[in-house]
Design a binder for these strands. Structure first.
Length: 585
RNA sequence: GGGGCCGUCGUUCAGCCUGGUUUAGGACGCCAGAUUGUCAAUCUGGAGGUCGCGGGUUCAAAUCCCGUCGGCCCCGCCA
């Protein structure tokens, strides 16, 4: 079989007799001389069939077709003067074939195995094994492997133990919808596939594992998106006897190493930090994209003094007024601004006020007569002649959300994003709870095991919404790479939080009883974090869909076009599981 | 649950708005022949499509209407 890979031969090998195995990429038949590119994971090598070297092999070359699997043996030779191919790693040499063996033939593939020319994704997924032969997909799979290896090797070096946790586990309240698995030996009972190994990794801390990690598959039965699959992978870890500062410092090292070794990207040290309140106030997002400016400007003072009724009434009702500055935005047409207004309404705003600064102290706007140019420009020092200001007045949550999203949309539209920049950011001091109007109760922003800041502990009883958590998210270029927290390690605090979340004693006992009990047996202070591996690969590899970084992903309807999963099962299988179907039309 | 875009030879795209001039066209691929230096080889010739599916309007439907299936994007959802 093979002596070399298709990407490794160079002028060093000239004169050697080698055997290559691989797939026929392309055949160029010149009559007497036939060229074939043989491809494997490593690359391409041009092999030459010449009747003067081997009439038999030359004869056989006529039947070779794309994607045939071959073994070729021949001599490595320098290509003739002027015929080297500088675009090919092996372009200086070629293999003069003595013998060729067809290891397998192949049907004509439904699409070409090359990066050029996009093919419908449905077709790619049906023939995923062919799609994965394409260099782009090979590169992404390799990148994924390398990221995992770098993370593993870093964590191993830091004395972490890789421990596997169950896939068949217990359904938990809160969070996403669970994937359920019926239990045959316990009729009527169901396992849930883990949404994350959260509870187990905390238990492992109680077990004295001290430092745990796992490249963990997680399952969430929610609707899919461009960056969301029903099963995805986390680099999941947990540490004992640490505080959040130590976690962040350690994780920065890991992320910096991964970026450096797998993508050659040097990230700043240390990563900047930002409190949640500042992220929301300045960027309208808890995962701000720092590759461009366009911050939100606070207009409380200005709005309180203006004649514009909408602003004043919003303030009177406890709302806020903020604005973003679109540099050079006077050129934006009225119809485009109206469309932005519709977009803003789609995001939940009641409306979008706008002002064009057409000259020194000169405003152009339907509301210009209510506004004093001088005090507006004083309130928004960024704004200059030629700029467009967009205002939203509403409850804080709406203002942040709408302006935050407009900020991203406009940055994209106006090409303000530095595509080469890498801007990591730790977002810290998240609120622990928010109030869910629909459920009429508090819900955990991170999860119910997140510890409150020590100094905010008393607020748990007096003003729970003011309580900040020992949580941290790592954000890169506006997407969340990972998040974690220091956990509650004392039973009484955990019970208090469950009370606030409206999780009764009985429910807590039946759902998390094992964790609560474990906390009573000497649980060490602990905390951890989980990184979304798929999204990390997307960022590093420049992939525009999560499906491109997963070998066998699902379509938007959570189906696999290759295997046709999920599928119906026979009555015997259902009977074994004590399941009767009641399909709703 | 909701909104949007898309579906035409193996692939990809045009044609659709404004129904008939289309025997549904181009490129890539495929097949055959030619070809001794190509590497997205080239040249010549050829095969290949019930226009996703069903129904309707019409003298006439790829084209207009309704429904349906599938793909993608987004909102909701994703502690």
């Amino acid at each position: 079989m093979r002596t070399h890979r298709c990407g490794e031969l160079s002028r060093r090998h000239v004169g050697q007799t080698v055997t290559l195995n691989g797939w026929v990429q392309r055949r160029r038949d010149h009559g007497n001389v036939i060229f074939i590119d043989v491809r494997d994971r490593q690359g391409l090598t041009q092999i030459v069939f010449n009747p003067e070297i081997s009439p038999a092999a030359h004869q056989q070359a006529h039947v070779l077709r794309g994607e045939f699997v071959v073994a070729v043996t021949g001599t490595v030779a320098l290509r003739p003067e002027g015929s080297a191919n500088p675009n090919l790693a092996t372009g200086e040499i070629e293999v003069l074939v003595k013998t060729v063996e067809i290891l397998n033939d192949a049907r004509t593939p439904p699409f070409l195995i090359e990066d050029e020319g996009e093919v419908t994704e449905a077709l790619r997924l049906k023939y995923r094994y062919l799609d994965l032969r394409r260099p782009k997909m090979q590169r992404l799979l390799r990148l994924r492997h390398e990221v995992m290896q770098q993370a593993r090797s870093f964590l191993n070096g830091q004395d972490f133990l890789e421990v596997e946790t169950p896939m068949l586990t217990k359904s938990t309240p809160e969070g996403a919808r669970d994937y359920l698995v019926p239990s045959r030996v316990n009729p009527g009972c169901f396992y849930a596939l883990p949404q994350s190994p959260q509870l187990f990794k905390q238990i492992l801390m109680v077990s004295g594992i001290d430092r745990y990690y796992q490249i963990a598959r997680c399952f969430r039965d929610e609707d899919l998106r461009n960056d969301r699959q029903p099963e995805f992978t986390q680099i999941d870890l947990e540490l004992s006897f640490i505080d959040r500062e130590q976690v962040m410092v350690l994780m920065e090292q890991m992320i910096r190493l991964v970026f450096q070794t797998t993508a050659g990207v040097e990230l700043p040290a240390p990563f900047p930090r930002m409190a949640y309140a500042e992220a929301m106030g300045r960027y309208g997002s808890d995962k701000p994209d720092l590759r461009f400016g366009m911050p939100l400007h606070d207009l409380q003072d200005f709005a309180s003094k203006t004649e514009f009724k909408v602003f004043r009434e919003t303030l009177a009702k406890g709302g806020i007024v903020k604005a973003i500055v679109v540099k050079g935005g006077v050129e934006i047409s009225r119809s485009r601004i109206d469309a932005l207004g519709e977009t803003a309404k789609g995001f939940g705003a009641k409306g979008l006020a706008w002002v064009k600064i057409v000259g020194a102290g000169q405003l152009e706007s339907v509301i210009a007569k209510f506004l004093d140019a001088r005090s507006l420009l004083a309130a928004v020092p960024d704004a200059q002649t030629g700029d467009l200001l967009l205002f939203v007045a509403d409850k804080p949550k709406v203002v942040y959300d709408v302006l935050g999203r407009l900020r991203l949309l406009l940055a994209e539209e106006r090409n303000l994003i530095d595509q080469k920049a890498w801007r990591p950011l730790w977002v810290v001091d998240f609120p622990m709870l928010e109030y869910d109007e629909a459920l009429k109760r508090y819900v955990a922003i991170h999860h119910p095991f997140t510890a409150p800041l020590d100094e905010d502990l008393p607020l748990l009883e007096t003003d729970p919404l003011k309580v900040r958590a020992k949580a941290y998210d790592l954000v890169m270029n506006g997407s969340e790479l990972g998040g974690g927290s220091i956990r509650i390690h004392r039973r009484e605090v955990q019970s208090q939080v469950f009370d606030l979340l409206g999780i009764g004693k009985e429910e807590a006992a039946s759902k998390f009883g094992f964790l609560l009990e474990a906390l009573e047996y000497g649980a060490p202070p602990h905390g951890g974090i989980a990184f979304g591996l798929d999204r990390l690969i997307m960022l590093l590899g420049g992939a525009d869909s999560i499906r491109d970084v997963i070998a066998f992903p699902k379509t938007q309807r959570a189906q696999c076009p290759m295997t046709d999963a999920p599928s119906h099962v026979g009555p015997e299988q259902l009977k074994d599981l004590s399941i009767k179907l009641d399909l709703i039309e």
